[in-house]
Design a binder for these strands. Structure first.
Lengths: 237, 237
DNA sequence: TCGAACTGGGTACGGTGTGCGCAATAGCTT
DNA sequence: AAGCTATTGCGCACACCGTACCCAGTTCGA
């Protein structure tokens, strides 16, 4: 009989043999540390193992495939959202949730890419989902409506954060500082503008050249968030 | 003097030597074919090369890193959005844009994952961006407002599609049919429900068990789209 | 006490992206 | 017409990846 493919259904370790030298949480934390410092691509089984002082293939006592490690990392990091408190009014609560999620994703730039393609069901993720659903507590909505509302908000947050991280990630991928990378990209600008093929985009480039303020992304996020919340409000009783 | 790091700034080939046996478009199309059929992970330089009947490292005459191939793939596939026509009213136009983008992403399940982390500036992507911006033509908006509106919509579409593809991708990753995978995941359900820790999520699971209709995702997308568009409307003059 | 369950970890295999060097080709200059 | 030089195709090699398999050592339950 094979083990269950979902890691959360497998006991952390058996009762019989020697006590394991590490824990799943250790593995997760090692992975997180590497990913935070050097990006998701730097996370390899060998790297994690050596950072733990373990043999490479010993990791497979804690995890049955690398994918499990990533799932552990996501759930571990979701744990840091505990402590988020909701206040009551659905609108401010949903804003709190969205901002917390964005903040976490910016603090761990690999998180969004991972949680996009993955249905994560670790305990911390479930707790967060439960908290998110509780934002609708007083409203007497159908589950379909709750899912539509929460799903729309989450989709926006995920999509926005991915876009926000895109440039940063590309710069990091190429091994350049953000400034260097921006400059290289910038050389492409005049070509686009000069081609005359994209008048509207050209206008956006030209007018947006100056206001490269540091809080630009913050303002864009808040602008989008306000719109999404207004959209949800329009469909509530 | 090194070549420009942005592929669109490098000429497709020099004027001097022998005529290249293939083109960038050939490379892109080969990659797309593989990715469509077997997923993004199956796309490797060797695979593309052998599919083209070329030596592996010959590809590096067309492209300076694998990342460039992916960028070519994205832009090539964006070309199939040509032919999208807008009607005039901003709301229906934005809906058209959103649906076209979702349709494309579902037709090429690897697209969303690629375009998330990447600022794509190929000619087809630029044309699409230009068309999207034209949806605001009559409205006399500031560029900031245009970006906020279009950005919010795009973020929602991207986020939604990624979620939508998540399960499918996970099933594919594990090499199971969707049905087999659902069953395995399903075994985890009772554990969650039985724990009693997640009452709201439990309610969602239980009530959503039956309505696993085929068009569920379509309806969820339309519900979200309507909300987002209402949200945009609330901020227009 | 002894067998079964369990852990640690080394070895090995088939894959990956890509830097380097060399032969063949074709346009530009003289 | 000749030759220089930019350019292409491509095999080899390297470092790294995930992980299947195997064996030795440890510990608990019977």
């Amino acid at each position: 009989m094979a083990d269950h493919p979902v890691i959360w259904m497998r006991p952390e370790h058996g009762a019989r043999g020697p006590r394991p030298a590490h824990s799943r949480a250790d593995v997760a934390r090692a992975g997180i540390e590497i990913a935070d410092a050097e990006g998701l691509d730097a996370v390899s089984m060998r790297r994690i193992a050596s950072s733990l002082g373990a043999g490479t293939t010993s990791l497979y006592r804690y995890v049955s495939k690398k994918d499990d490690v990533l799932e552990l990392m996501v759930d571990e990091v979701m744990g840091s959202l505990t402590g988020t408190r909701l206040s009551g009014p659905w609108r401010t609560d949903l804003a709190t949730i969205a901002r917390a999620q964005r903040g976490l994703a910016l603090r761990h730039p690999w998180l969004a890419a991972l949680s996009s393609g993955r249905t994560n069901h670790g305990p911390n993720s479930l707790r967060w989902l439960e908290l998110s659903l509780s934002a609708f507590d007083g409203l007497d909505l159908s589950t379909d409506d709750m899912l539509a509302n929460l799903g729309t908000l989450s989709a926006f947050v995920l999509g926005h954060v991915l876009g926000e991280l895109g440039d940063r990630a590309a710069a990091h991928r190429s091994g350049l500082t953000h400034a260097q990378w921006m400059e290289q990209q910038g050389e492409y600008g005049p070509t686009i503008v000069g081609s005359g093929l994209y008048p509207r985009f050209t206008r956006v480039i030209v007018e947006a050249e100056t206001p490269h303020a540091e809080d630009r992304q913050d303002r864009l996020f808040e602008a989008g968030l306000a719109r999404v919340l207004d959209g949800l409000a329009a469909h509530l009783p």
